[in-house]
Deep mutational scan, measured.
Amino acid sequence: MTSCHIAEEHIQKVAIFGGTHGNELTGVFLVKHWLENGAEIQRTGLEVKPFITNPRAVKKCTRYIDCDLNRIFDLENLGKKMSEDLPYEVRRAQEINHLFGPKDSEDSYDIIFDLHNTTSNMGCTLILEDSRNNFLIQMFHYIKTSLAPLPCYVYLIEHPSLKYATTRSIAKYPVGIEVGPQPQGVLRADILDQMRKMIKHALDFIHHFNEGKEFPPCAIEVYKIIEKVDYPRDENGEIAAIIHPNLQDQDWKPLHPGDPMFLTLDGKTIPLGGDCTVYPVFVNEAAYYEKKEAFAKTTKLTLNAKSIRCCLH
């Protein structure tokens, strides 16, 4: 018999989150649709729960009410004593943790798909938090293969000092899905179709896995975050240069030392320094102006996964 890495157990509980950011409308629209008619997301033997994560922000069509829901799922915020004085999103995070967690427990949901849009030209993107997770690498390989020839990129946010504390991190297997470009507060049919297909293929993978299909060893190309880059700023902290036209919409493309990065209003080009080629992502993302992030630098690498098969009882 072929030796293989056996994944822990079959997958039982899956959640699909929309509206973690209330103005990213593809996930909101799909989740609302699936709450009314969820036939397309159901798979035999699998509990799939669509869920609106930040209903107040969705109602106002804004990213958040008090603070970013997708950055506060750490033990400090989840452990705060519940009171009306807490920011709305912290209270909501505790409610979500109660419903789908608790985080880092045996009772937490197996998989959470968190649906997002970006204003950046990132196409279909899967966000991975753990480079050693054979199950998710296999799932992402399946999704990428199923979507081809449509490109699907994998963004690895594993980093020693950049801690995200994402909404989906309460699950055993957290999956971020990011599709763009799409303006905030807008629905685009092409973007919706791409996100819908990503979810379909992900659920198909889980179904095949649960039925005992063995997935042979595989490898995927990923883009691992190195650092986030702020806009150049003046002495008052105001933005002093904008994304250069040569960099705009060039997510995932190589940016070499000396290539144009920013452009000042008086026409001066600010190039990339250093001696390493990087791959920019979230270029000129609207939501990241407040976070002082013009783009993120990534490096390209390959992740390998062992063969996996479900432990059938």
Rank of each mutant, 00 (worst) to 15 (best):
H141T: 04
I137H: 03
G101E: 06
S131N: 04
P217E: 12
I96P: 06
I270F: 01
Q182P: 02
L46N: 03
L126R: 04
L115C: 08
A39S: 13
E9C: 08
H5C: 14
H141G: 00
K13V: 00
K228M: 11
Q42H: 12
R91S: 13
G180H: 02
C152W: 05
I52F: 03
P160Q: 12
A171W: 02
E221R: 00
G22M: 09
K59I: 09
Y223K: 06
A219D: 14
I220Q: 04
W34C: 03
D251K: 02
Q248C: 09
E106H: 13
L150T: 14
I6K: 14
P151L: 00
N70P: 07
F51R: 01
S307V: 02
I199W: 03
G274S: 06
Q250S: 11
P217N: 06
A148H: 14
T118R: 06
N97H: 14
A93C: 11
E95C: 10
I170K: 09
S120H: 02
G273Y: 07
H201T: 07
A39Y: 10
P257W: 02
K32Q: 12
E84H: 13
G45Y: 01
V179A: 07
R92G: 07
E24M: 02
F100Q: 04
K144L: 09
H159Y: 08
L192W: 05
I111D: 04
R71Y: 11
R168E: 07
Q184N: 15
K200L: 11
K297W: 04
T264P: 02
G123F: 04
R233H: 07
N117E: 08
L46G: 02
I220L: 14
A39I: 11
S105N: 13
G273K: 11
D266C: 07
R92I: 11
T269I: 12
I6Q: 15
S146M: 15
R233K: 11
P232G: 05
R43H: 01
D130H: 01
S169P: 08
Y279V: 00
K228D: 06
V281L: 09
Y173L: 13
K80H: 12
S3D: 15
E211K: 12
P232E: 00
E106R: 13
P160E: 14
S169Y: 06
I16Y: 00
C311Y: 10
I143D: 00
A219W: 07
K292C: 09
K81D: 13
I11H: 03
A171T: 07
T277H: 04
L272K: 01
E238P: 04
A93Q: 10
L147V: 11
N54E: 00
F29H: 15
T269H: 07
L99M: 13
V283C: 07
Y288D: 15
T299Q: 14
Q248T: 07
G27Y: 03
A57E: 02
I65R: 05
I72H: 11
L46R: 04
V283Y: 05
D110K: 02
A305N: 06
E24H: 08
P260N: 04
I16R: 03
A219N: 12
V283M: 05
R168T: 11
F262K: 04
S146N: 15
I96V: 11
H10D: 09
V154F: 02
L75F: 13
K144C: 10
G273P: 09
C61D: 08
F209Q: 02
H208G: 09
D66H: 11
M198D: 04
D234W: 03
E8V: 10
H116C: 08
P216I: 00
G45R: 07
T119Y: 05
F135K: 00
T20N: 01
N23P: 06
A219L: 06
K213C: 13
A148P: 01
E8I: 10
V281Q: 05
S131K: 09
I96H: 06
K163F: 07
E76W: 10
P260A: 09
N23H: 07
V175Q: 04
I16M: 02
K300I: 08
Q182N: 12
N117D: 09
N37D: 13
Y288K: 13
G274N: 03
G267D: 07
W252I: 03
I137M: 08
G101F: 06
Y223L: 00
F100K: 03
A287H: 14
E40P: 02
M82E: 14
C61L: 12
H313R: 15
D190L: 01
N210V: 07
L99G: 08
K297M: 14
E293N: 10
C152L: 09
N236C: 09
V281D: 02
L150P: 04
G273H: 09
I157H: 15
L203Q: 02
F140R: 04
P87A: 13
L35I: 10
Q138E: 02
N236R: 12
T53K: 01
P50R: 03
M261Q: 06
V90F: 11
L263C: 07
S307F: 01
R43F: 01
P87G: 11
I239A: 07
H313Q: 08
S161A: 12
N246Y: 09
F262P: 01
E211Y: 07
Q138K: 04
C276T: 15
E24W: 04
L25M: 15
K81F: 14
A165I: 09
G273E: 15
L128C: 00
D251C: 15
V154W: 05
I226V: 11
Y231I: 01
L128I: 01
E227A: 07
H207I: 11
T125S: 09
D190M: 00
F17Y: 06
I41V: 10
S169E: 06
V281C: 15
G176F: 08
F282E: 12
C276M: 15
S169I: 05
C67Q: 13
K81Q: 13
G212M: 01
V229H: 01
P260H: 01
G38V: 09
K32M: 05
D259L: 03
T299Y: 10
T166A: 13
L35K: 11
K268H: 10
Y109M: 06
L150R: 11
T277W: 00
G18F: 00
I72D: 08
D107T: 12
C218D: 05
S131F: 06
G185R: 02
H201I: 05
V278D: 01
E89H: 03
K200M: 13
G267R: 05
V229T: 07
F51S: 06
E24T: 06
P181Y: 05
V175K: 03
A39T: 12
G101A: 08
E238F: 06
